[in-house]
Design a binder for these strands. Structure first.
Lengths: 361, 361
DNA sequence: CAGCTGGATGAAAACGTTTACATCGGGAGC
DNA sequence: GCTCCCGATGTAAACGTTTTCATCCAGCTG
């Protein structure tokens, strides 16, 4: 039915070995047989079978990507970065999402065994040690935004703590001393770090930590909406809302608008991530830039390096941290934030390599 | 190095055939050997090699997904729908993006040959016939939002024409008779259909088609920003802007805000797609709901059906069209659009099966 | 001219599964 | 007590590549 290398060999009256050599230019072949083989291959529309090739070569030229979800702009940005880096290295992507616990991740990994050369796992709600457990031994893996456990798997993260700290300091510098905080899910590593950063900034400013000013969301717009509603319902509402990610900030602003509470005049709202849409919101969103696509690219680069054995020795768990940057826009009411005359997203920015340096801790 | 079925067989002192039978429960095996095999397999952490399995079975339990891009919420929604449907059928996803022309699509397909059982291709800027050309003969394929060519490949689309027509009619009914239109890329099939729908509505209302009111974008926020700038620069600016997708509508609103032109009072702005963030914008975006995730799910369901040969005969090109719905929110200035008290995105809506019926043309 | 060297090729053994096909019991039917 | 069938297993042939090894021949070197 489907045309195989044998068909090509037969019609070109050579052995399959020669066909393979021509197609991969892996050994010298005389110019005329080479031409003959190519011609037959073209005319038959021959395309080598990927599974057979992977099996024989013992490498698949593919990477596995395991994500907790695909909802919202964050994951598509991440995937975009991963895809760019993988494609540059001629690798395909086997993607699987909706994996929130170690069991689910385990079964996703099993489905990928033998079809991928390495694994990119984002599991902010799962302990890194638990992930390591379900991992095949010595399988090249990079964990994205995992909890900072002392496991043996390579990890890349964003400076959640520093970013949140800087943001809270910024809000304080604007004179907003009562800050409501919409946190992420309780077991989410990123969410926790951002919370810690916020705390740290408050404490070093000598401010108390008021439990009434804390509500817990789940990184969805809806939970941001709910969070804002809760915060506005307390006896003395805050003067600013710091949502632990942009999606929740968007939800919060949406609630405030419905209540005719003007942002930023009556309420400053800030987020975290700098998803692409943030700069186009009304008001444009002050946030912490993460360089999501760059994160994906760096993670992929790390993995590809490991595959080429330009890698750190497998038993040394390295941990990379990408820096974050404050992006001051309209929603925080900062006087420095004049409306930009041009949208910042130029076509070059859209391909998204931010060249953010890596700092190892 | 890695543990294979032979290792399991040896340690359980049975043949590889028996191990395979146990693992797939494909033939009766006595309870005690069965138990013994399972125990050995577990203790060795044996996981079957996917490539070998695909090769032997002649099916990969994977689908190939080829997208033009990954930027923005549209594609992540689509991918989310596809992933849901595929996962339900225990299929993996091999994803490849950034393919805008037939050549790129062709090479992506070649890389997937033998690793996937079917193909999901979104290529709005490529003629369906050109896609069919680079397709392996008789390979199960579903085209998403492809141009309506008479090719032999199955296609699923959204009712772009009807949606755009309804939207323009709505704007006209609000008394906005001068409507600026920000179109999509010139060769984009979806964009063209939406343009046609807009035209049709104008014509049946007896209105002229003013070329000054047409600007061409590329579905990015930035091009929406530029488009709005252009439209505001003409001698007698419009009273409404219809952007051919939500991203451009967001860009347009962003420009208008910078110019202190209030939306919807001085300018109505509407979009197309109903990406998740649309309802959280300020003002919330009036748009045409497409059910993006549902589109992905339906496309995948169609493909899976074809794989099971519950399919339409391969030589009959079927064409499915999903209906679209007007979603009236704040940005069009419609009196009927009272602010909702609750965000519409409930957690059930987030898993996104819209149950939108399929209408075949 | 004997002995190398190396380019061009083919035969066949991997790679790790699944799956015909074959074998061997033993219990049921007569 | 003889078939017949069926459950439980093993052997080996696929699946479609790549790659090692071997072979052959031509052209050098000495």
């Amino acid at each position: 039915m489907t045309v195989t290398i044998k068909d090509v060999a037969r019609l070109a009256s050579v052995s399959v070995a020669t066909v393979s050599r021509v197609l991969n230019s892996s050994a010298p072949v005389s110019p005329d047989t080479r031409e003959r083989v190519l011609q037959v291959a073209r005319s038959l529309h021959f395309v080598p079978n990927g599974s057979a090739r992977s099996l024989s070569r013992r490498r698949a030229a593919a990477l596995g990507v395991i994500l907790p979800d695909l909802y919202g702009e964050f994951f598509s940005e991440l995937l975009r970065g991963i895809d760019q880096a993988a494609q540059r290295a001629s690798h395909s992507l086997l993607v699987s999402s909706s994996h929130h616990d170690a069991r689910g991740i385990g079964s996703a990994i099993r489905a990928m065994r033998g079809r991928v050369d390495g694994l990119l796992i984002m599991a902010p709600e799962v302990d890194a040690a638990d992930v390591a457990e379900v991992l095949p031994a010595d399988f090249p893996t990079v964990l994205i935004n995992g909890a900072a456990a002392s496991s043996s798997v390579q990890t890349i993260t964003v400076d959640n703590f520093g970013g949140a700290q800087a943001m809270t300091e910024h809000l304080l510098s604007l004179g907003r001393r009562r800050i409501g905080f919409i946190a992420g899910a309780a077991h989410n590593a990123d969410a926790l770090e951002r919370e810690r950063g916020h705390h740290a900034a408050l404490q070093s400013a000598g401010l108390p930590i008021d439990p009434e000013l804390y509500v817990r969301g789940d990184f969805s717009e809806e939970s941001g909406w709910q969070g804002a509603a809760t915060l506005m319902g307390i006896l003395s509402p805050p003067a600013a809302i710091f949502a632990a990610n942009d999606a929740m900030a968007i939800g919060a602003i949406s609630y405030l608008r419905e209540q005719d509470i003007t942002v930023p005049e009556r309420m400053a709202v800030v987020g975290f991530d700098d998803i692409p849409v943030a700069r186009y919101l009304n008001p444009s969103l002050t946030t912490v830039r993460v360089g999501i696509a760059a994160l994906g690219q760096q993670a992929t680069a790390l993995l590809l390096d490991a595959l080429d054995n330009r890698a750190p020795p497998t038993n040394v768990a390295s941990r990379s941290v990408l820096p974050t940057h404050l992006v001051i826009r309209g929603s925080c009411g900062s006087p420095t934030s004049a409306p930009s005359r041009q949208p910042a997203a130029s076509s070059t920015a859209r391909n998204g390599f931010d060249e953010t340096p890596i700092v190892s801790h």
